Amino acid sequence: MIKLSVCIPVYNFDVRELVYGLKKEIESQNLSAEIILIDDFSDWKSCSLNSEIQDVASVFLSLDKNLGRSKIRNLFLNYAQGEYLLFLDCDGKLIQENFLKNYINFLSKNPLTDVLYGGRKVPAEIPDQKHLLRWKFAVERENLSVGERKSHPYLSFQTNNFVIRQNVLYKIPFNVSYSNYGYEDLLFAMDLKSENIIIHHIENPVLNNDVETNEVYLEKVKESVASVSAMLKNNAVKDRISDIKLVKAFGKLNFFPLNIFIVFFFKISKNFLEKKLLHGNKSLRYLDLYKLGLLFKLMK
């Protein structure tokens, strides 16, 4: 029987509903699975709420400093007992019946599987304007059907809901040089691709239960573009992100004097673009222009 280690990095979020839901399925289905929580130095409020489930999880570890998105995922290897590790974001909500069983059934029928991604969704209801930007991006760019994901298995991979064989993660851990928000999941996917590790896709999504405000998401966008800039400046990894839409656009336009003009244009239009994005209900083309201008500025 396949044993699954459910690994949940926790940061400033009430994860009780997710953990209770997982525990209920494990017990009702008599699954061979464990739940491991590692709290990445959350605030006192989240720690207080989540202390309720310390005895529900097989392992509950609270860190005394923040490790970041990549290091903490690698840390689960020190505690997981399962042949496969299922990584879930702490803001995920279970919406699939037999969520864990769906993964276990696929792995049982396809024993050569090394990596498996189940997908993501956001609430169907359109949120208020203050939360619209992140929701629009998820709906238009991230919430892909399983067919769309299979056509681009590496580019459509995300780390919010995926299974990986333990020995594969030992061999190809997350790159700890890039622990901030943005594109660390794609770099990991491309590291897998470089080692000929196939990413399989099925329809087994979780709901993204925490859609950020426009202001918070825009700050994360800035952080993600900074990560791309750092990767492009690193000869060891820059070729692995060459298929990113933003990187492709940068490569096509990065020649003199157009690059100088783009930096100048971004300087004078930055406030205008930010105002449009913070309004929330504008086309994502504004976001594309903003990210491209910011990348040119960081790369000059």
Results as ranks from 00 to 15, higher is better:
residue 219 E to D: 15
residue 54 Q to F: 11
residue 54 Q to T: 05
residue 46 S to G: 03
residue 120 R to F: 05
residue 138 A to R: 00
residue 44 W to Q: 14
residue 164 I to E: 02
residue 274 E to F: 01
residue 203 E to P: 01
residue 3 K to M: 15
residue 245 K to G: 09
residue 177 S to R: 11
residue 44 W to K: 10
residue 94 L to P: 09
residue 239 D to R: 15
residue 1 M to D: 11
residue 227 S to I: 08
residue 248 K to N: 11
residue 154 Y to Q: 04
residue 43 D to Q: 04
residue 78 N to Y: 00
residue 12 N to I: 10
residue 149 R to Y: 02
residue 300 K to L: 05
residue 118 G to N: 06
residue 229 S to V: 07
residue 78 N to R: 14
residue 171 K to F: 08
residue 155 L to G: 12
residue 44 W to S: 11
residue 20 Y to L: 13
residue 78 N to P: 00
residue 148 E to Y: 09
residue 99 F to Q: 04
residue 300 K to V: 02
residue 223 E to F: 02
residue 163 V to W: 03
residue 259 N to V: 01
residue 249 A to H: 13
residue 282 K to G: 02
residue 189 A to I: 01
residue 299 M to A: 11
residue 30 N to W: 00
residue 109 K to H: 13
residue 275 K to T: 11
residue 168 V to N: 03
residue 157 F to Q: 03
residue 238 K to T: 12
residue 4 L to D: 06
residue 298 L to A: 05
residue 291 K to H: 03
residue 229 S to E: 10
residue 255 F to Y: 14
residue 257 P to D: 03
residue 24 K to G: 04
residue 43 D to K: 08
residue 76 F to Y: 12
residue 50 N to W: 01
residue 161 N to F: 01
residue 29 Q to M: 13
residue 205 P to Y: 01
residue 166 Q to W: 00
residue 35 I to K: 04
residue 244 I to D: 13
residue 13 F to N: 14
residue 13 F to T: 13
residue 160 N to P: 00
residue 79 Y to S: 00
residue 178 Y to V: 03
residue 121 K to P: 01
residue 173 P to N: 11
residue 213 T to Q: 02
residue 188 F to C: 05
residue 175 N to K: 12
residue 238 K to D: 10
residue 159 T to I: 13
residue 131 H to D: 06
residue 91 D to I: 08
residue 65 K to M: 07
residue 298 L to E: 11
residue 130 K to L: 11
residue 208 N to P: 00
residue 176 V to F: 00
residue 202 I to P: 07
residue 111 P to A: 03
residue 19 V to S: 06
residue 214 N to C: 02
residue 39 D to K: 05
residue 107 L to G: 06
residue 177 S to F: 05
residue 151 S to P: 01
residue 278 L to I: 03
residue 215 E to P: 00
residue 245 K to Q: 14
residue 243 D to Q: 14
residue 64 D to H: 08
residue 186 L to K: 12
residue 292 L to A: 10
residue 223 E to L: 07
residue 215 E to H: 12
